[in-house]
Nucleic acid binder design. Structure first.
Lengths: 197, 197
DNA sequence: TCCTGATCTGGACAGCGTCAACAATCTGGA
DNA sequence: TCCAGATTGTTGACGCTGTCCAGATCAGGA
């Protein structure tokens, strides 16, 4: 099997699928998903307006693929941040900071992950669900460690996890939209979780 | 000046502006703002596809008007809930519950308020800003009372307000999207603010 | 009475997502 | 080696959209 065609002819692109995703991703840096047109993506990739249909069922499927890519990045950012931190409180704080940081750095990608138009929660496509599960497990693990720390002992882990997720997600959303300055969000999270490590 | 035409002719509608808003609002109950077409709204109102342009500069202006309407409802729901509750803690909890409740009951309207496409944060139009200010003042007032309560004394009011807003907004967003069951959100908020009144 | 401005209509245009038909190219087996 | 079928491109067409334009209709004041 050949990933890239040896032929000198440009008829077959070789790897149009990822080329289309890349083109869409570069458009996503400057405009929201709703404004991205399939024809413009095709133009950027140098193919006809109908070529994408051989790789994605429709426009929503391409945006969905980008959403899955973004979810993976969001998850991996949290995992890396947690691993780099020491102590239950600092690890939770690092997780939240990574979540908010991703939303601040890649607002359109973050919005795409939670856009019901392209990434509906009931996930009929199977490629998003495992990432969500991994993220839930990551949070559960860290909260389980957190409730062993003095000051958090006795708290219901499930309720605490839900509250933390909501807080971090709300900060991410508000920072992404520009309603809340990024510098305000992180201290607010610290005020919530507590100061010590 | 006549609000409604006396003429039997249907040429002049009489009150097309609000009729268009009503038609769009009824469409918004079953589909997101992004899918609402100006032509469909005009059809519902029984006018030609170009009539809306005499009342709204473009499609975004109509959706913006709906967003302002929704923001007013969201704000008034919070104000009513706060007034009906007694004691600083319960009042804050009621405020949060009203916020989340509005998002759960009117998901598309809530989403519209925070849709940067139609209601950008920098608000060039002047009709959204006063509502936002009123909401910020409402929250500030309640947080100011909260930090007098034992257990909250000494907390930075600004940071606490930001954290509360983020938490409540995150819950509203997650409930609206279906990521978090509504029954889970409210206990989680209680766990955060505290049990007593 | 007539004129001015506000309101509504129909026609037009380009851009969009998608379907259908066709062409070029690759692949694997005889 | 060569051919049949599957893949991956292409062009063309359709209906829908937002928006611009010119013209028709109506209300109220000079």
């Amino acid at each position: 099997m050949l990933l890239v065609s040896r032929s000198s002819s440009a008829y077959h692109h070789g790897n149009l699928q990822s080329a289309l995703e890349d083109a869409a991703l570069s458009l996503l840096e400057t405009q929201p998903a709703a404004r991205i047109s399939l024809r413009e993506v095709a133009r950027r990739a140098g193919v006809s307006h109908n070529a994408p249909y051989h790789h994605f069922g429709d426009r929503a499927a391409l945006l969905h693929a980008l959403g899955v890519r973004a979810m993976r990045e969001l998850l991996e950012a949290q995992e890396a941040a947690v691993e780099a931190a020491a102590g239950p409180v600092d690890r939770v704080r690092a997780l939240g900071a990574a979540y908010v940081g991703y939303a601040a750095d890649h607002p359109q990608s973050f919005a795409l992950v939670f856009d019901p138009e392209y990434c509906p929660p009931g996930d009929p496509a199977a490629d998003m669900a495992p990432l969500i599960t991994r993220n839930e497990e990551l949070l559960s693990r860290e909260v389980a460690a957190l409730v062993q720390v003095p000051g958090f002992v006795g708290r219901d882990p499930a309720a605490l996890a839900a509250a933390l997720w909501a807080t971090v997600h709300g900060m991410a959303e508000l920072v992404m939209l520009g309603h809340l300055p990024r510098e305000v969000a992180e201290p607010a999270l610290t005020a919530l979780v507590g100061g010590g490590s």
